[in-house]
Design a protein around this nucleic acid. Structure first.
Length: 417
DNA sequence: CCTCCACCGGAAAGCCGGGTCA
DNA sequence: TGACCCGGCTTTCCGGTGGAGG
């Protein structure tokens, strides 16, 4: 390997010699808001038209925007808001824009407090009665004579926990004479409309904008546009962009997914020290995203289901496929070891179907004739990774001690009930 | 062709934590 | 504050069943 003395390895050599694929990686992240949005011209135009009264002292209607994830809702609104603020400064229209992500700011109090702070009031993030904050917002807006646009992203999250905030916000204009508040609600959940109070709904959706999913060609355009900024020239093998777009288009036309796929593919290429992103990297990326997603769901599973899955990982070492009875037997053993009440087999049966529909295991109900009817299942993802994810749970740590013992019993094939 | 295994999966009721209302 | 309700999770009970083996 080392022909001459000058070839001594430095542990950073790998890093130095690695080719630079990315020019700007952040461009492919969700947080990035691009300067222009291909195939959203129509939505931008509509939004601008709907909001333009603000600049002439009029009152725009409230707007409700919906579309699935990755259809550009947030990006479009942010872009339009940015432009609106700039123009408003230029013509001194006193437009104040506040963007709120309701998943993070998820209570009536926080919503109102954030708005109040935006208006320059020093409202503490906790402590005051909610209606006092509401009054504060009202009086401040009024005294400033401001035109305010409030964007409520992921508004469906608010309904469950803070519907009254929505209610008061939609009615606030009635109490204002000088100022105006325009609400823009964004949601990816269509069913959410059914849960909403009829009065709030009608006020909120005076105007509606729909963001349809992108098709494969549109996704390609989006990727190409970002590629220019994100990558150095010529690092993408032919067909990489097409493949990413095609895969994302198959799944709901989600631009976010397409961008993720491209980014992860490039990261894999980089790690492999390849100077080009190739089709094979995309294939690997698909796999990686899939497993990452699966592991994440596994981590959030309730304890009982985790023990159940753990039992299956042990079984998987000895046999490819196993039945409900076998799994239940191991599961019960493990439960008793860590003094957890075992569930009934009936319940376990349901948990197994849930795991099946989550795609973590693969199961079918088969008949083994004389030997009964049962669900036969297998784990077809990476068992080791799965096990590792399960062992992260401190409550399962104990089980490692009994692993050997359990394994021995399994080898003997003894399943007592 | 019948039996009978080993479980499936529906129905209903119990339990529990949290929220609501008077 | 306590009575009450709601929804999710779980248990109990049980009728149902595809097909290997007799």
């Amino acid at each position: 390997m080392h022909e001459n003395e000058g070839d001594k390895m430095n542990i950073f050599d790998n890093f130095l010699s690695s080719v630079c694929i990315f020019k700007n990686r952040d461009v492919l992240r969700h947080s990035y808001t691009p300067e222009n949005l291909p195939h959203r011209e129509e939505q931008i135009k509509q939004l601008v038209e709907l909001l333009s009264p603000l600049l002439k002292g009029g009152t725009p209607s409230n707007i409700f925007i919906y579309g699935k994830t990755g259809t550009g809702k947030t990006a479009t609104v942010k872009l339009v808001m940015k432009n609106l603020e700039e123009v408003s400064k230029k013509v001194d229209a006193r437009v104040v824009v506040q963007y709120l992500n309701c998943e993070i700011i998820d209570t009536a109090y926080r919503v109102l407090a954030t708005i109040a702070r935006k208006l320059g009031r020093n409202v503490p993030m906790t402590g005051w009665p909610t209606d006092q904050v509401y009054e504060e917002v009202k009086s401040t807006v009024e005294s400033k004579g401001a035109k305010m646009v409030i964007v409520l992203d992921e508004i469906d999250k608010l309904v469950k926990r803070a519907e009254e905030a929505l209610y008061s916000l939609t009615r606030i204009n009635a109490d204002l004479s000088n100022a105006r508040i325009c609400l823009i609600g964004i949601s990816n959940n269509l069913k959410f409309k059914n849960f909403l109070d009829a009065r709030v709904l009608s006020s909120l959706s005076e105007e509606e904008l729909v963001f349809p999913p992108y098709n494969a060609e549109q996704l390609e355009d989006i990727l190409r546009q970002r590629t220019k900024i994100a990558f150095n020239d010529g690092v993408l093998e032919d067909g990489v962009i097409q493949l990413c777009s095609a895969i994302a288009a198959q799944e709901h036309g989600d631009a976010r997914k397409a961008l993720d796929l491209l980014r992860v593919s490039a990261e894999i290429a980089e790690r492999e020290g390849d100077n080009k992103v190739r089709i094979k990297h995309v294939r690997k990326a698909v796999k990686k995203i899939e497993t990452d997603y699966m592991l994440e769901t596994v981590r959030t599973l309730p304890l009982q289901t985790k023990i159940l899955l753990y039992s299956m990982t042990l079984l998987a070492e000895n046999m490819e496929k196993f039945t409900t009875g076998e799994v239940y037997c191991v599961y019960k053993r493990l439960c008793s070891k860590i003094s957890v009440e075992a569930l009934t087999q009936r319940r376990v049966s349901d948990l197994l179907s849930e795991l099946d529909s989550l795609g973590i295991i693969n199961s079918i109900v088969i008949s083994k004739g004389r030997y009964g009817r049962t669900r036969e299942m297998k784990i077809d993802s990476d068992v080791e990774a799965l096990k590792k994810a399960l062992e992260e749970d401190y409550r399962l740590q104990e089980l490692k001690k009994y692993e050997e013992e359990t394994r021995k019993i399994l080898k003997l094939g003894i399943f007592e009930t």
